[in-house]
Amino acid sequence: IATVPDKEPLSSTHLAPPSVGQYVRTEITRRLAILATCLKLECCISGTHSMDLVALEPFGEYISLPGLDCTFPGGYSRLPERMLSTLPEGTVLLNKAVRTIQWQGSFREEGDNARDYPVRVECEDGDTFLADHVIVTVPLGFLKERHQDFFQPPLPERKAEAIRRLGFGTNNKIFLEFEQPFWEPQQQLIEVVWENESPLEKPSTDLKANWFKKLIGFVVLQPPEQHGHVLCGFIAGKESEYMETLSDAEVLSTMTHVLRTLTGNPLLPTPRSMLRSQWHSTPYTRGSYSYVAVGSSGDDIDILAQPLPEDPKDPRPLQLLFAGEATHRTFYSTTHGALLSGWREAERLNQLLEPSRGSEGQK
Score class of each variant (00 low, 15 high):
Thr3Val: 12
Pro5Glu: 09
Ser12Arg: 15
His14Tyr: 11
Ala16Pro: 08
Ala16Asp: 14
Gln22Pro: 04
Gln22Ile: 07
Gln22Ser: 12
Arg25Tyr: 07
Thr29Phe: 00
Thr37Trp: 08
Thr37Cys: 12
Leu39Asn: 07
Glu42Cys: 07
Cys43Thr: 11
Cys44Asp: 12
Ile45Ala: 14
Ile45Ser: 10
Ser46Asn: 13
Met51Ser: 06
Glu57Ala: 11
Leu68Val: 09
Ser77Pro: 07
Ser77His: 15
Leu79Trp: 02
Glu81Cys: 07
Arg82Leu: 08
Met83Gln: 07
Leu94His: 12
Asn95Cys: 01
Ala97Val: 05
Gln102Pro: 02
Ser106Phe: 03
Glu110Thr: 15
Asp112Val: 03
Gly126Leu: 07
Thr128Gln: 12
Ala131Pro: 00
Asp132Val: 01
Leu140Cys: 04
Leu143His: 10
Phe150Met: 09
Phe151Asn: 09
Glu157Gln: 13
Arg158Ile: 06
Glu161Asp: 15
Arg164Val: 09
Arg164Tyr: 12
Arg164His: 08
Gly169Lys: 04
Gly169Val: 09
Phe175Arg: 08
Glu177His: 00
Phe178Gly: 06
Gln180Val: 00
Gln186Pro: 02
Gln187Phe: 02
Leu189Glu: 11
Val192Asn: 01
Val193Gly: 03
Glu195His: 03
Asn196Cys: 02
Ser204Tyr: 06
Ala209Val: 05
Leu215Thr: 13
Val219Cys: 10
Val220Asp: 15
Pro223Gly: 10
Pro224Tyr: 09
Gln226Ala: 08
Phe234Ala: 10
Phe234Glu: 08
Lys238Gly: 04
Met243Leu: 03
Glu244His: 03
Leu246Trp: 06
Ser247Met: 03
Asp248Thr: 05
Glu250Val: 03
Ser253Thr: 06
Thr254Gly: 05
His257Cys: 01
Leu262Val: 04
Pro266Tyr: 07
Leu268Arg: 01
Arg272Glu: 09
Met274Ala: 07
Met274Ser: 11
His280Lys: 15
Ser281Pro: 02
Thr282Met: 06
Pro283Ser: 02
Tyr284Asn: 13
Gly287Ser: 03
Val294Cys: 14
Gly298Pro: 04
Ile303Ala: 11
Leu304Tyr: 11
Pro307Ser: 08
Leu308Lys: 12
Asp311Val: 04
Pro315Gly: 03
Arg316His: 13
Leu320Asp: 13
Ala326Leu: 03
Thr335Ile: 15
Gly337Lys: 14
Ser341Lys: 15
Ala346Val: 01
Asn350Phe: 11
Gly358Arg: 15
Ser359Glu: 15
Gly361Pro: 01
